[in-house]
């Protein structure tokens, strides 16, 4: 039923309130939910995009609020293909926490994961982090860098399309994180439980 060639898992991290959920919603639903609290019951969002004529399905995972007290589960990072680290350009502390986030990423994510640094909320006029500071940080840590506004839809589409394109290129050059040997399919020896096609073979 699903018509796509690649499936990529993209996860977002960063302090609470930097706009992670807004970025995801803006991209997947074209919505900007103002002043919403933590999202209940929403786990990850899916959007299929087209890159060079191929359908690419992005599965975008949000933190479910576990970042508030630095309690994100390690399993959240497992098998991610891309990792978006978000800070708020109008809030210095969210930028100051980036090294802590990087440490966690190093610890649990695959070393080959595509990493993107995003400064969000550029619609705000009380900027605290100049663009070049974010750029420098990203360059030092070998990450892509982009500034966005989920509210004004600035660069949001670009961010995710860039990720889709890069992952696709990686997939073609077989340089994806190791859990994907062939395309984006799960290794034949791994069984994803819940896949209905695997259930009920034997009564």
């Amino acid at each position: 039923m699903d018509d796509y060639k690649f499936l990529f898992k993209v996860v977002l991290v960063g302090n609470a309130g930097v706009g992670k959920t807004c970025l995801v919603r803006r991209f997947t639903q074209g919505l900007f939910p103002p002043g919403q609290g933590a999202t209940i019951g929403v786990d990850f969002m899916i959007k299929t995009v087209e890159v060079e004529g191929e359908k690419v399905k992005l599965q975008i995972w949000d933190t479910a609020g576990q970042e508030r007290f630095r309690s994100i589960t390690q399993s959240y990072y497992r098998s991610a293909h891309a990792l978006i680290l978000v800070y708020d350009i109008s809030c210095q502390p969210t930028f100051d926490c980036l090294p802590d986030w990087l440490r966690e990423i190093e610890e649990y994510a695959s070393s080959k994961v595509l990493r993107i640094l995003v400064g969000n909320k550029i619609d705000r006029d009380d900027r605290e982090i100049p663009t070049h500071v974010g750029e420098d940080f990203a360059a030092r840590h070998n990450m892509y860098f982009l500034e966005t506004s989920a509210k004004e839809a600035d660069n949001v589409e670009k961010l995710f399309m860039q990720i889709a394109e890069d992952l696709m290129e990686q997939a073609r050059s077989k340089d994806l994180p190791r859990y994907d040997t062939s395309t984006a399919n799960i290794d034949s020896r791994t069984s994803t439980i819940g896949d209905s096609s695997c259930c009920g073979k034997l009564i």
């Binding site: 933590a38 209940i40 786990d43 479910a64 609020g65 576990q66 508030r68 007290f69 309690s71």
Partner: peptide
């Protein structure tokens, strides 16, 4: 957490 549990 997805259903609102607070983690610390």
């Amino acid at each position: 957490a997805v259903f609102g549990g607070v983690y610390a």
